[in-house]
Amino acid sequence: MATPKEMLTTWDKIQFGAVLPSFEDPKTKKRSKFHSYNYKVADWRVEKPVFNPDLCINCDFCWVWCPDSCILVEEVTTKRGKKQAKMVGIDYDHCKGCGVCVDVCPTPIKSLLMFPEHTPIEEALAQWPKKEDKKKD
């Protein structure tokens, strides 16, 4: 993705040594303009992963494997009082559609599946394979 025009500074105002800070203000963790979070790469995508929360077992495999930190999680406390990261969805601004998360998802029917970029989420969920479907093939 091309660098946004407003970011193109001149030689005399360039970042020293091309060293890029993550934060504009480390105390408030305000992200700097160099932070890769600002770079949306979703337009690379041909297929997108869709998440089906009904099947997910919160194993966090997808979170570990996603090369672009696009698995969104929430901290929850289980019935036994253990803290856990609960998978809540996908950051579609930064997901590039590589399919790694789908590949590593261990549930018998995948909790993540790739669909064409233009397929609406509801439609994708409606098309989700059933157990019977799987036995057939």
């Binding site: 660098t3 193109l8 360039i14 040594g17 091309a18 060293v19 934060f23 480390p26």
Partner: peptide
């Protein structure tokens, strides 16, 4: 506290 990136890539525009 203040993480930085060394060795960034700069193409033709930078």
């Amino acid at each position: 506290e203040n993480p930085v990136t060394y060795g960034a890539q700069t193409e033709e525009e930078w």
